[in-house]
Design a protein around this nucleic acid. Structure first.
Length: 420
RNA sequence: AGGAGCGUGGCGCAACCGGUUAGCGCACUGGGUUGUGGUCCCAGGGGUUGCGGGUUCGAAUCCCGUCGCUCCUCCCA
């Protein structure tokens, strides 16, 4: 075998697909409860959409994008996240002209060129929601509420939500200056990464996990102390509203985030089951992004979560065998005439919504029955010379072994299969 | 990008201080049982031990390189 999948790109095989289908189904259901509408966007965008939207100095843009020239030499990029694309689509289709307030969600693959490790692949899958067109702090809370509702629907416990506000663009600049002042006398004692960040993006220093840097970071000013009047009020109301809904959270003044478009509220949902990559989902406000893309001043708030990580946590918790794809009926056949009858019956039964299969490998009857058992078929019917001529047979419930006489035609069979 | 560990049939493992023909379990295929399943019994297919080189009478085993995978730092979903 000479071919392998590309590094960091993983196949999802049939034996694990029901997990994916379950999670996707649940996302559709929860999104509908909150009145979010699905949007499907291209995997590929013009590179500058991401580099300008996410920020030139972020890790994602700097070193993690799959960027390549197309046949005309235009620089294209496999999407590393979807918020920028959603905003592009929002503007391109003039959604802001029809109804500037939009509640959207998506599910799909994303690509980042990173060194793979647990909970991080180069192709991975995210679900996300974006609520565009309102500054209301209650909307921030709705987004967070949806995240909790999704987790609750899976019965996932032991999660913690960390939240912070990094303020508007002006606050952010002011905060960066404050951090500069704070670290200027200490930066020499801190790790090389922090020294680099000191110049590039002092906010990122707060993310450092190096124990030597911790005391310096702990003493740093909190972004929430420097918020302007409006931003402070906004954050206050977000927390208040979370309290009113009984949604648990803890304020983490060190929480920044790696994407430049965030303003005001930022948050992450953390699971201890995940190891080093512990963020199950993350999000925040991006009040300047639409305008930055040339649209009218339009605020927005959203979140994105990792499908792989969610499924991983799910599997940690319930270790039972997963549900198999259902098969209502297996037709075991004897001889050419038996198979001929089976083929005819299957055509008709499938029209009636019965999932049905037969043996295509000419195996012995006992092997066919063993196969039906392995497929977890609910019912079994043998089609041999007797059944072909009599047009009646005995249908067997595989779980109980009980056998019932049945007329071999779609009506007779479905009447038994469809009753519970 | 840096650090650590690991590569043996599809999967999980054994053999490894060099020594017959690389074994075992699961899975797969057939038979026992050409008309009724999960158990059991028997048989079978499937490996250039990741790849390349070196040491040696002899390498899955020791050495070097390389590729791949996993985990960690970092960053994030």
């Amino acid at each position: 075998m000479n071919y392998r999948s590309v590094r960091g790109m993983h196949d999802i095989l049939p034996d694990e697909i029901t997990h994916w289908q379950r999670v996707e189904q649940r996302i559709h259901e929860i999104a509908a409860l909150f009145n979010y509408h699905e949007i499907r966007l291209p995997l590929i965008e013009h590179t500058e959409l991401f580099s300008r939207g996410i920020g030139e100095e972020t890790d994602v843009v700097n070193k993690e994008m799959y960027t390549f020239p197309d046949r005309r030499g235009r620089s294209l990029t496999l999407r590393p996240e979807l918020t920028a694309s959603v905003i592009r689509s929002y503007l391109e289709h003039g959604l802001h002209n029809t109804d500037p307030f939009q509640k959207l969600y998506y599910i799909g693959p994303m690509f980042r060129y990173e060194k793979p490790q647990r909970g991080r692949s180069r192709q991975f899958h995210q679900y996300g929601i974006e609520a565009i067109g309102s500054l209301a702090p209650e909307l921030d809370v709705e987004v967070i509420h949806l995240a909790w509702a999704l987790m609750d629907s899976f019965g996932i416990r032991g999660l913690s939500l960390r939240i912070n506000s990094i303020g508007c663009a002006k606050d952010r600049r002011r905060y960066q200056d404050a951090l500069h002042d704070h670290f200027s006398s200490r930066i020499k004692e801190m790790c090389p990464d922090c020294q680099r960040r000191y110049n590039d993006n002092p906010l990122r220093i707060l993310d450092c996990k190096n124990p030597h840097c911790q005391p310096h970071i702990a003493a740093a000013p909190a972004s929430t102390d420097l918020l302007c009047h409006d931003c402070a009020n906004h954050f206050k109301r977000v927390c208040q509203c979370l309290d009113e809904l009984g949604l648990p959270y803890e304020i983490d003044p060190r929480l920044v985030r790696g994407l430049d478009y965030y303003t005001r509220t930022v948050f992450e949902l953390i699971s201890t089951d995940l190891g080093a990559q512990d963020a199950l989902l993350g999000g925040g406000r991006y009040d300047g992004l639409v305008e930055q893309f040339g649209g009218p001043p339009t605020p927005g708030v959203g979140l994105a979560g990792g499908m792989e990580r969610l499924i991983f946590v799910l599997r940690q918790r319930n270790r039972g065998p997963q549900d198999k794809q259902r098969l209502d009926l297996f037709l075991a056949t004897i001889g050419e005439e038996g198979l001929r009858l089976a083929i005819q019956l299957m055509k008709e039964l499938r029209v009636h919504g019965v999932s049905v299969d037969t043996d295509y490998r000419g195996r012995s009857l006992s092997k066919q029955i063993g196969y039906a058992d392995q497929l977890a078929a609910r019912y079994l019917l043998v089609l041999g010379p007797d059944e072909v001529s009599a047009k009646t047979g005995k249908i067997k419930r595989m779980d109980s072994g009980e056998e019932l006489p049945v007329a071999i035609n779609p009506t007779g069979l479905t009447s038994i299969i469809n009753r519970r």
